[in-house]
């Protein structure tokens, strides 16, 4: 099995390779973007996207899928721009409530043995509806402390980069180095075995979903801090973006195979590829969405070269 080591190494390097490729393409197309200011601008949405990707990663680690994270981020964003700004305590309580609801969804999925795709689909309607009820029209205002934080300019490295590094480090330690992190992942690989050892599968599922909710809230905070106001559709792309990010980062839909570092890198790659790269390629706006799709395909095709063949 030592022969497998090089292949595994290649696979784990693939997310970084994809990122490098996108950065190289940008550098070639527009060398002036390779500056502190340039990266700060291009990566402006990196933190919200990376946080959303990490949230999705926790759910995928449990062999589930969350199609509602986007509308949850929209909802939380609307809360941040209204209640959190005006009555911080109430706003914080609502956000916490959101995390608890997420944990509840996880519990429901486990106890009733439900398919997560459909449950989170239904929940996406719920969060979207709530977002509209909270903030029917775009508006609101981000709290001052949040705006200041998200527009800060630390020396040497832009805020998004520092934030992403920190995020990757924390999540890596949490999920890949602790005992309970191994339990959380193990439940995605062989739930029966984990259950037999005495761990509560219910708690595991709730923990994974609660973590997703938590990072969803953080993502909304980052997003509103950057955009300074909210609208009920602000997070609508994030469900699918986050899934793509996890997969780009080497995660698999079933089996509990995820990589926190890979997920963050995947999020960064998508941030760059989704808009800045396309702008530099002078792709007309009509075609930008399509170009996103094509880019995704390209990256995954590259991954397929080094990946183990899909079972059956």
């Amino acid at each position: 099995m030592t022969a497998r080591a090089p292949v595994r190494l290649l696979r784990s390097l693939l997310p970084a390779f994809s990122l490098a490729l996108v950065v190289a393409a940008i550098a070639w197309l527009n060398p002036r973007a390779m500056s502190y200011f340039g990266f700060n601008l291009m990566l402006s949405l990196a933190l919200p996207i990376a946080l959303a990707t990490v949230a999705q990663m926790f759910v995928i680690a449990g062999s589930e899928l969350d199609l509602s994270i986007g509308s949850f981020i929209s909802f939380c964003g609307c809360v941040v721009a209204t209640w959190l700004d005006q009555s911080p305590l109430l706003g914080a309580a609502i956000l916490l409530g959101g995390v608890l609801v997420y944990a509840g969804v996880g519990a429901l999925i486990h106890l009733r043995n439900l398919p997560s795709i459909v449950v989170t689909l239904g929940m996406s309607f719920v969060w979207q509806g709530l977002a509209i009820l909270v903030l029917p029209r775009p508006g609101g205002a981000a709290p001052d402390w949040l705006q200041t934080l998200m527009s800060s300019k630390p020396p040497f490295l832009p805020l998004p980069v520092i934030g992403s590094l920190l995020l990757a480090l924390v999540c890596h330690l949490l999920l890949m180095r602790t005992g309970y992190g191994a339990v959380l992942r193990g439940a995605g690989g062989n739930a029966t075995a984990i259950g037999r050892t005495g761990w509560s599968l219910l708690k595991v599922k709730m923990a994974l979903f609660a973590l997703a909710g938590l990072f969803g809230v953080l993502s909304s905070l980052a997003l509103i801090g950057i955009s300074t106001s909210a609208d009920p559709n602000i997070g609508s792309n994030y469900s699918l973006l986050s899934i793509a990010g996890v997969i780009l980062g080497g995660g698999e839909f079933v089996g509990g195979v995820v990589s926190p570092v890979g997920a963050v890198i995947g999020g960064l790659t998508l941030t760059l590829a989704a808009s800045p790269l396309l702008t530099f390629l002078h792709i007309p706006p009509d075609w930008q969405i399509g170009a996103n799709g094509a880019l995704l395909i390209l990256v995954l095709a590259a991954r397929a070269r080094f990946s183990r063949p899909e079972a059956a």
Binding site: T178, G179, Y180, A182, V183, R185, G186, G188, G189, N190, T192, A193, I194, R196, T197, G198, W199, G255, G256, V257
Partner: peptide, 20 residues
């Protein structure tokens, strides 16, 4: 009852909660 996505050592770790 091994978890295929974990390493051998991790599988032992989850087997013994005391290895926290």
């Amino acid at each position: 009852s091994l978890c295929p996505n974990l390493t051998v050592a991790e599988n032992v770790r989850i087997f013994h909660p005391a290895l926290r």
